[in-house]
């Protein structure tokens, strides 16, 4: 048993994936990020789920709204740089009072290596809050799943937009081997 557990160490995406499944989230729209890799692989491997690869993140606001209008639950997973692409589009689900759940892996904050990421990374939370999105920051790995669950329940039960912001402190800062 111990040997098996060591061979497949637990990953936060296992817990988030379980919370997604238990809430009937069946579609995940994405422009991927390194920190999302394991979660997206689980979605792709599950025959009951659909991964929708986008060309730009704001398309996700349309897809989740259409899914909701058609009776299904969907969400968007993206890197924090994609949040900037979504600002006008976030008014779309809000106008329909459609739920819009986002899982955002952060860049440009904790230990960032790439200066080009810093501007948007620092602006993510104030920009989202300026357009009415409730933010749920996560700084500790053992708090991701419960925070995601709380944000998902609030989004779907109260029909609002909610973003879970996963810190680089949790997923690790990208270093391109130069740290």
């Amino acid at each position: 048993m111990a040997a098996k557990a060591a061979a497949t160490p637990a990953h936060w995406s296992d817990d988030v994936f379980r919370e997604m499944k238990s809430r009937d989230i069946t579609t995940v729209c994405t422009i991927p990020d390194g920190g999302l890799t394991q979660l997206l692989l689980k979605v792709e491997a599950d025959p009951a789920m659909r991964l929708v690869t986008l060309s730009t993140e704001e398309e996700g606001m349309g897809v989740v709204t259409g899914q909701w209008a058609g009776g299904k639950r969907a969400m968007i997973a993206m890197q924090s740089s994609g949040v900037g692409n979504c600002i006008n589009a976030l008014g779309f689900p809000a106008a329909y009072k459609a739920p819009c759940l986002m899982l955002v892996t952060m860049r440009g904050q904790w230990g960032e290596f790439n200066p080009w990421q810093v501007s948007m990374g620092q602006a993510v939370r104030p920009a989202l809050e300026a357009v009415g999105v409730r933010c749920f920051p996560v700084d500790k790995i053992d708090e991701i799943a419960e925070t995601f669950a709380a944000a998902a329940d609030m989004a779907f039960n109260s029909s609002i937009s909610a973003a879970v912001l996963v810190s680089q402190r949790v997923i690790g800062a990208k270093g391109f081997g130069q740290k």
Binding site: R50, G62, V63, Q67, A69, A89, G91, F92
Partner: peptide, 18 residues
């Protein structure tokens, strides 16, 4: 009445749901 660029993504989400 808004969301320029989202007509096709919205229709896609709906088509997949229905």
């Amino acid at each position: 009445w808004g969301g320029m660029g989202l007509a096709v993504p919205t229709a896609l989400g709906l088509a997949l749901a229905q």
